[in-house]
Simulated scan of single mutants.
Amino acid sequence: MIHSQKFNSLALKDKLKTLFLQGSFVVSIRYYGYKINLYLLNNYYVEVFYNHKLDIIEKVQPLEKNHTRMKFYSDQIKLPGDLAI
């Protein structure tokens, strides 16, 4: 199990490896030119920002529970309200 702070300190390729081996895909959204995939890793959510125009993953980061993007995700699916992010 990897905590969000340790996850955030990993190199991009190691974040992706950890996420794809241990995480669970939840949903994807379109957001300001990005396709953002949301994953559940242990007890927090992680976003993968894919720039389709450049065909690259630009960043991978834990999602803060109070971020405004939470509305975009919750409009598509019901996220557990008691899940610690």
Rank of each mutant, 00 (worst) to 15 (best):
M1N: 13
M1K: 08
I2T: 12
I2L: 15
I2D: 10
I2W: 09
H3R: 14
S4D: 15
S4V: 03
F7D: 12
N8S: 15
S9G: 04
L10R: 11
A11N: 04
K13Y: 10
K13H: 08
D14F: 00
D14M: 10
K15A: 04
L16C: 07
L16H: 09
L16V: 05
K17S: 11
K17P: 07
T18K: 11
L19P: 05
L19H: 08
L19K: 04
L21D: 13
L21H: 09
L21V: 05
Q22K: 14
Q22P: 01
Q22I: 05
G23V: 07
G23N: 05
G23M: 05
F25M: 10
F25N: 05
V26C: 04
S28R: 14
S28Q: 14
S28P: 04
S28C: 09
I29L: 01
I29N: 03
I29R: 03
I29W: 00
R30Y: 13
Y31S: 00
Y31L: 04
Y31A: 01
Y32E: 14
G33L: 00
I36K: 04
L38W: 07
L38S: 06
L38T: 10
Y39K: 00
L40R: 11
L40H: 08
L40A: 03
L41F: 03
L41S: 00
L41V: 08
N42F: 11
N42I: 00
N43E: 14
N43G: 05
Y44Q: 09
Y44F: 15
Y44R: 05
Y45L: 10
V46I: 03
V46M: 05
E47M: 13
E47T: 09
E47G: 03
F49G: 01
F49I: 01
N51W: 06
N51P: 06
N51L: 11
K53N: 10
K53G: 00
L54W: 10
D55G: 06
I56D: 06
I56P: 03
I56C: 08
I57Y: 10
E58D: 15
E58P: 09
E58R: 03
K59T: 12
K59I: 07
V60E: 07
P62G: 01
P62C: 01
P62V: 02
L63M: 14
L63F: 04
K65Q: 11
K65T: 09
K65Y: 12
N66R: 10
N66H: 13
H67Q: 02
H67V: 06
T68E: 15
R69K: 13
R69M: 06
M70P: 01
M70S: 00
M70R: 11
K71N: 09
K71Y: 08
Y73D: 10
S74P: 02
S74A: 09
D75Y: 08
D75S: 06
Q76C: 03
I77K: 02
K78T: 13
K78L: 12
D82I: 10
A84C: 08
A84M: 11
I85R: 10
